[in-house]
Write a protein that binds this DNA or RNA. Structure first.
Lengths: 185, 185
DNA sequence: AACTAAACGCATCGATCTGTGCGTTCGTGC
DNA sequence: GCACGAACGCACAGATCGATGCGTTTAGTT
């Protein structure tokens, strides 16, 4: 967990290279064919790394996927600062929708949910939820009366992720921006 | 697909028994331990059926999970008829929330998403979406002006499924009923 | 520059999965 | 009741996965 830039006992050159190669291999394989089993030997072969290394560092394919997802979905979207909560949320929702339109991203989320269970699913959404909380807290510090984080999650993250995962047509950014209207009337 | 009560070339006793046993085995294994790999030989052994049979009838674990999910999530919830759209939606949302609180159901959904990709995910939600459409159409036939099915999906199914899958606390039925207030002000 | 230990590569082994061919059982139609 | 064919059980084989022990490379330290 927190495999992005966490301080490890040995963050030096080779370990970082191997990790980058493995992460990239997972992304590439997920982007190609869904029916491929995505096993550790396959990932290792694609990454040009020995399977033993992957087994030892990540253990199972579930943990590896969770690590990749956690790394991929943290810091990929910057929290906007337009001055108003509505503007922030609209831009942010549009950015998230754009991200969820990427088939690779969808494949990563689906695989994380399937292999990592609740833990894998959380790795895909905790950062988004934190971003939402940050925008709402900022509005609160600004003196406004923003909605609850729970409510914002239900009305924004809910539709966004539902459409992405359960339907074949992920939401357009314009549609995502429209979701804010339900939250802030 | 549509393995529930579809007319097959041979729907007789033994085939039906085998299918029921395999479906039950999948449910049991999903309910037990998440870390179990859920492979076809394991399912077959639990069902008291030869693995060859499962390979020949369902092919892959993804197709099997999609079939089980499709069978499990069709007809499990009856569309309520309280007389008003609000009443229907509130009771239905509560029922769906109750269903999603079952860890077995969650495990089945997660596994279907992971192994079956978009197809597997659709198997878990198309019936729910049809139920929603049915209630809205009925309201329309009644002369009312119900919201769009898209909007209802976004505001009801979205939060319900997001909470169930991405958080560790699926929504309470009371909370689910409250979602209707955002849809019908 | 030398030392230390973490991380990796390699060879290998057991376990399990996936798939095939053939004989048998059982449901269906005549 | 009888024949036909579909579905199943069984035995077997190829392939792949998961894991271990040991030697080697390499990053970090003094």
């Amino acid at each position: 967990m927190s495999a992005s830039t966490a301080v490890q006992s040995r963050p030096g050159g080779r370990s970082a290279r191997v990790r980058a190669a493995v992460h990239r291999a997972v992304g590439e394989l997920l982007a190609e064919d869904t029916s491929e089993a995505l096993t550790i030997p396959i990932v290792a072969a694609r990454a040009g790394v020995h399977a033993t290394t992957v087994y030892r560092r990540w253990g199972s394919i579930g943990d590896l996927l969770a690590a990749v997802a956690s790394s991929r979905f943290s810091g990929d979207i910057v929290v906007p600062d337009t001055g108003s909560l509505r503007g922030d949320l609209e831009q942010w929702a549009g950015d998230v929708a754009t991200d969820l339109q990427d088939p690779d991203v969808l494949a990563l989320i689906r695989a994380s949910i399937g292999a990592g269970g609740a833990e894998g699913a959380c790795a895909c959404s905790t950062d988004r939820r934190n971003q939402l909380a940050a925008m709402i807290e900022r509005e609160q510090a600004r003196g406004g009366t923003p909605p609850d984080v729970e409510r914002a999650t239900d009305l924004l993250l809910g539709p966004l992720y539902y459409r992405a995962i359960f339907t074949s047509a992920p939401g357009e950014p314009a549609w995502a921006r429209g979701l804010v209207a339900d939250l802030l009337p």
